[in-house]
Design a protein around this nucleic acid. Structure first.
Lengths: 194, 194
DNA sequence: CCTACCGATCGGTAGG
DNA sequence: CCTACCGATCGGTAGG
């Protein structure tokens, strides 16, 4: 595990531990004392490295949001037709998810516990990301390659299928991350193509 | 709203209020005092009608689980070919979800906070339900109507797309529950057919 | 990074 | 259904 073999700052160790606990038990059910115990220190000592429990959740959620937004910008830069853009966007999304399951789960499930104004900022980033997907579907429709569908509805359906991966994916499992990406993008493209 | 116009037992009012709060803020972030305040009574008074906070969550989760299991049994009873079975199973699933968004959200998101042994019982029911879907996909493959796919993977993908509806569906929105069911079952069937 | 501690809040009970 | 209350636990601070 990274936590024990690679040298990380205490702050990063705190984030990694929190991600794991937040995924397992949820943000509200994980106490600062739980996190501290995992690191063999006292709860009060955490506050030498971080400002608050809120800060941990914020850091996790916004780091993930940034990664997702970067990856779709890259897909749009690299490709110019809708089908390849969507294929890469789906694969990158899955790569990010499976590359850090703990942080991804927190990003997907626990963002509701962000406080304002961070909560609104987060929702805005999410919306921006969904918008990029909607644009790709529109591209495909304009190119006469994709069917005419309700974009909002289609994007939410696609992203839900992708995000659910964090609920069942096991790195030791039968399917590799790439196989999942291949299957899912084929399934989705198949459903969208004319 | 049902809560004010139809006469309900106090116990049912407590469940309805809890479903709404658990959906909005999550189980852990909703206190017994929050629930009581919504009903204009003291927290201690809740305990004349229910045994514990746990009991509320259990009731919500298992009621929903029972509904889903009944609905798929009905689909299997009424139809004998895979395509019709799956179509009805999808539509019934969506009807249950949109028919009670609060309870459905709790069922989907908050079951993790069940305690043993109820947690294991719940997971078993969930697995039973997923198994019924897997059987239908197998039927379709045997009938030479559906493609050969990884059933576990396909069912999780289908259910995730269905369940995500609770995150964005608004009864006042543009799409009716039936339209969503129609679109989604067409999309899924399209992806599965040979 | 620790000891010692704070005020707030939690689920729940006793007794009426 | 309420008053009065319990022990436990929470996020966080002061001061070293």
């Amino acid at each position: 595990m990274e936590e024990s073999t690679i040298k990380l700052t205490r702050k990063e160790q705190i984030f990694l531990t929190a991600e794991r606990l937040f995924k397992e038990k949820g943000y509200m059910a994980s106490s600062m004392r739980d996190i501290a115990a995992e690191l063999d220190i006292e709860a009060a000592s955490l506050y030498s490295h971080i400002k608050s429990k809120d800060e941990i959740l914020e850091t996790i959620c916004f780091r993930m949001a940034d990664q997702f937004l970067e990856s779709i910008a890259e897909a749009n830069d690299l490709y110019f037709n809708a089908e390849e853009r969507l294929k890469m966007a789906i694969k990158s999304h899955i790569k990010i998810l499976t590359g850090d399951l703990n942080a991804s789960s927190v990003f997907i499930r626990e963002w509701r516990h962000l406080n304002e104004p961070r909560l609104s900022e987060f929702k805005e980033l999410r919306n921006k990301y969904e918008n990029e997907f909607r644009s790709i579907l529109q591209n495909g429709e304009d190119e006469n390659v994709f069917q005419t569908v309700d974009k909002k509805f289609a994007v939410l359906t696609i992203l839900s299928a992708l995000n659910w991966i964090t609920e069942w994916y096991k790195p030791e499992g039968e399917m590799t991350s790439d196989e999942i990406a291949e299957n899912l993008s084929a399934f989705i493209l198949n459903g969208l193509r004319k």
